[in-house]
Design a binder for these strands. Structure first.
Lengths: 210, 210
DNA sequence: GTCTATATGGAGATAGAC
DNA sequence: GTCTATCTCCATATAGAC
């Protein structure tokens, strides 16, 4: 870098760029959640974010990198939530898992969760090769895995369940189609929907016998 | 029709056509399950089914109708399963639900479940307008709904759960990403995976308190 | 840095020979 | 009825003016 010291001017510029990036990311999350990666078009993203497609490509190299950034960002926010919960020393592990699951579902039901399809899409291949993404996913899985182990020792989650099974089920809540199905019916508030699923899921985790 | 009586010759021909259709449907189910509707291409279907794309279009008018047929077929087979179970008068309703869910998950894990994305895809819009599809879906939902009500009266499913919630969760098992995640790990057999999810799900359904 | 206009490629669908 | 070759559209990505 020729000038590592940021001038006030460059700071202002950086903030303006950040505002645009935020708008793009918000649009991307909504579209990824509602239409999926393949069906989402860069024209839609640009339109919703309020800039031209060419400007969008000035901010992100490709559709793949845009979606990848969205996935990385949600992992970053999720990790922040996890770290906040980790500081609550007196909260039982199963309650921490319950809260992080609730956060994921609220994010999803508000259209802010860019869940990638479970299917073998082109995007998921690219993400596997993305070090930043994989590192965050690994860190998240480790931290959640510790809580799963604690909850199993406490008897709050059936010890007979493999810990990966419990972990995969937590991740699966972030893309549970039941959220959208119940929401589109219109008979329940977001909180009610999230609580129904939480109750079903954690009751099963606690009382299952194999 | 000019000749409503089928000659032996036309019967043989019809069978040959059916063999091709079966191959196409098998390929379609695999691709819909693994890559999703948007990412699946007609070239892939034709290649896997062992015919040219033009011949494929001779059998199905469009990609949309092909995928629609796959969805209708799986509903038809599912309804057959349901009717078989309905004849078992002494089987508790919750066991019938458990068995139909197990069937759906086995079908999915074998790559034969053309689950449509939960997302608002073009396909799901087309299916909503398809009378055949909607009629079968309605019939299936009615029949399953009766069993849900019985199971709730028997105390096998928490009566505090809305019946649509229970129903949506049953449907959601047919596209549960945990199936694929555990399968790709390679540590468990298909039966073990299905049983893990069944146990988690129905234990939660029974013991949840709201 | 942002836009309009355009290049490029891929996938749905079809023409026409056999 | 099946194939090869082709049409056409649309979405990703870029060129070039301002």
């Amino acid at each position: 870098m020729t000038n590592p010291v940021q001038t006030p001017k460059s700071l202002v510029k950086a903030k303006l760029v950040q505002v645009k990036i935020d708008a793009v990311m918000a649009a991307t999350n909504l579209l990824l959640a509602s239409r999926g990666y393949e069906a989402m078009t860069m024209d839609e993203v640009a339109l919703q974010a309020g800039l031209s497609k060419a400007s969008l490509y000035n901010l992100f190299d490709s559709k793949e990198s845009l979606a990848g950034e969205a996935m990385i960002q949600v992992l970053r926010i999720g990790l922040e939530e996890v770290n906040r919960l980790r500081d609550m020393a007196d909260l039982p592990a199963v309650q921490k898992l319950r809260r992080i699951t609730a956060w994921a579902m609220r994010t999803k039901i508000e259209g802010k969760m860019p869940s990638l399809p479970a299917q073998n899409s082109n995007l998921s291949e690219a993400l596997k090769a993305n070090e930043d993404y994989m590192a965050r996913l690994f860190e998240l899985s480790m931290k959640l895995g510790i809580w799963v182990g604690e909850a199993q020792q406490n008897g709050d989650i059936a010890a007979s369940f493999p810990s990966e099974f419990v972990l995969y089920n937590l991740y699966a809540r972030a893309c549970d189609p039941v959220l959208e199905a119940l929401k589109s019916e219109g008979n329940y508030s977001n909180d009610e929907i999230v609580n129904l699923i939480l109750e079903l899921h954690f009751a099963g985790m606690r009382t299952a016998r194999l």
